[in-house]
C-alpha cells in the first residue's frame, strides 16, 4: 500500500474517532491526541479566526496538591478587543462571559475540548444585536473545534 493511501486511511480513521458535540449550552470536542499538541492547534485556530489569545490558565497545577489528577488542564482565554469593548459598553451584565474561554482537558492520549455555547445566553436577551453576536461566537467556536479536529487528524496521518 502506498504512503499516500495509508495517510488517507489514517486520516479517515482518526476523523471517525474524534468529533464535536453541540448541546443546548455546551460545545464539546474529543480528539484522540495528547493535550499539549491539541492545545497548540487550539491556539493556532483561535488566532486564524481573528481572535487574540489573552492568556492561558493552568488549572491543574494548583489542584494537584488537593489530589485532583489530570494530565493537562488548561483554559484558553481569547477575544477580539472591539467586541469586548462593545460588550462592556453596551451590555455590562455580559462582561462575566468575556473574554471567551475554551477548556482543554487531557487524559493520556485523549483530549477533550469544552466551551460554553454563547447561544445559552440568547434566551435572556431580546436585543437582536447581541443575539447576532452570540450566534457569531457560536459559529466561530464550532469552526475552531472543527479545525482542531481536522488538523490533529491530519497531524497524526502525516506522522504515520
Amino acid at each position: 500500500m502506498n504512503t499516500g493511501l495509508l495517510r488517507a486511511l489514517s486520516l479517515t480513521v482518526l476523523l471517525a474517532f474524534s468529533g464535536i458535540a453541540f448541546s443546548d449550552n455546551m460545545i464539546m470536542g474529543r480528539v484522540p491526541m495528547r493535550g499539549e499538541i491539541v492545545l497548540e492547534y487550539v491556539i493556532s485556530s483561535i488566532e486564524e479566526h481573528g481572535y487574540t489569545v489573552a492568556h492561558i490558565q493552568l488549572c491543574d497545577g494548583g489542584m494537584k496538591e488537593f489530589g485532583y489528577k489530570s494530565d493537562l488542564y488548561r483554559v484558553v482565554f481569547f477575544g477580539k478587543i472591539a467586541e469586548v469593548r462593545a460588550i462592556s459598553e453596551r451590555y455590562p451584565e455580559l462582561v462575566s462571559y468575556v473574554p471567551l474561554k475554551i477548556a482543554v482537558i487531557a487524559e493520556k492520549d485523549e483530549t477533550l475540548l469544552s466551551v460554553l455555547n454563547p447561544q445559552a445566553l440568547a434566551p435572556f436577551f431580546t436585543d437582536e444585536e447581541v443575539r447576532i453576536q452570540f450566534a457569531r461566537w457560536s459559529n466561530d467556536l464550532e469552526s475552531i473545534f472543527e479545525d482542531v479536529r481536522r488538523s490533529t487528524a491530519q497531524h497524526v496521518a502525516t506522522m504515520e
Binding site: Q57, C59, V75, K101, I105
Partner: peptide
C-alpha cells in the same frame, strides 16, 4: 471538579 470536570470553562 470531581463532580463536573468541565467546570474550567467558567473558572
Amino acid at each position: 471538579l470531581k463532580t463536573e470536570p468541565r467546570l474550567g470553562i467558567v473558572l
